[in-house]
């Protein structure tokens, strides 16, 4: 079952002041919400708060009506930088969420699903950037999370690999019921992937567009 989010008057920051203030946002179960904004607009901060890695100064973040007070395997996260553990092979990286939750280590299907069959025993440093993001995707989805939070996962990839990854993402998400919050600075990527697009400006959310167009987003940014 997918997860819903509600942010109510949320103020977020890192000790030296607020990065985002007065955030009100609803994310429906099963929705793919793209969050677009320029560098420093607080996209990653918002995502870290949804993951439970950052507590708001003010306001509440609710996941299925319950306040988010810490991390949970229900809310998997894919990082922009390489979040893979470099000493673990592809297989052992993908297995990790299952090991932590003491579940059966059945990961072959997911490794195959993201196109890495035959590369199970490779270390992250032996993979390309796109392949590493595939491992992150498999690792995020293997435990059956109810929400997936994606922090510019394809930001460092070349155009061709990025397009391949976007196709793969849409393909695998079709098989899961997970709610997705996808952060990007790329307007086209937000339009391609998002059911709705939230535009983040300095200090907060400027608008959430249900039927977004490139021109409309650029106007808001």
């Amino acid at each position: 079952m997918s997860l819903s989010f509600r942010l109510d008057g949320v103020r977020l920051g890192y000790g030296h002041g607020a990065v985002l203030d007065g955030i009100d946002l609803d994310v429906a179960p099963g929705e793919l919400l793209a969050v677009v904004g320029s560098s420093g607009s607080g996209k990653s901060t918002l995502l870290r708060a949804l993951a439970g890695l950052l507590q708001p100064y003010q306001g509440k973040i609710l996941a299925d009506g319950e306040e988010v007070r810490g991390t949970s395997p229900d809310r998997a996260m894919i990082f922009q930088e390489d979040g893979l553990l470099p000493w673990r092979t592809v297989r052992r990286n993908v297995e990790l969420p299952l090991r932590i939750r003491r579940k059966p280590l059945d990961v072959s299907a997911w490794i195959e699903r993201v196109g890495l069959a035959g590369r199970e025993d490779r270390l992250p440093r032996e993979l390309s950037g796109g392949q590493r993001q595939r491992v992150q995707l498999a690792r995020a989805l293997v435990g059956g999370p109810r929400a997936v939070l994606m922090d510019e996962p394809f930001g460092a990839l070349d155009a061709q690999t990025r397009a391949d990854m976007q196709r793969l993402l849409l393909d695998v998400l079709r098989d899961t019921a997970a709610t997705v919050v996808f952060v990007t600075h790329d307007v086209d990527e937000a339009l391609l992937l998002g059911d709705r697009v939230a535009v983040l400006g300095r200090g907060g959310i400027k608008t959430v567009l249900t039927s977004a167009t490139r021109e409309r987003i650029l106007e808001e940014l």
């Binding site: 890695l53 991390t71 949970s72 979040g83 553990l85 000493w87 990790l96």
Partner: peptide
């Protein structure tokens, strides 16, 4: 901190972070 964040978002606690991140990462 990214590695620790990754383990925490998988539901890992302090001991998981110690075993899966700190000990192998500091080796």
């Amino acid at each position: 901190t990214l590695w620790e964040d990754a383990v925490r978002t998988m539901g890992g606690g302090r001991l998981h972070v110690l075993r899966n991140v700190i000990l192998p990462g500091a080796l």
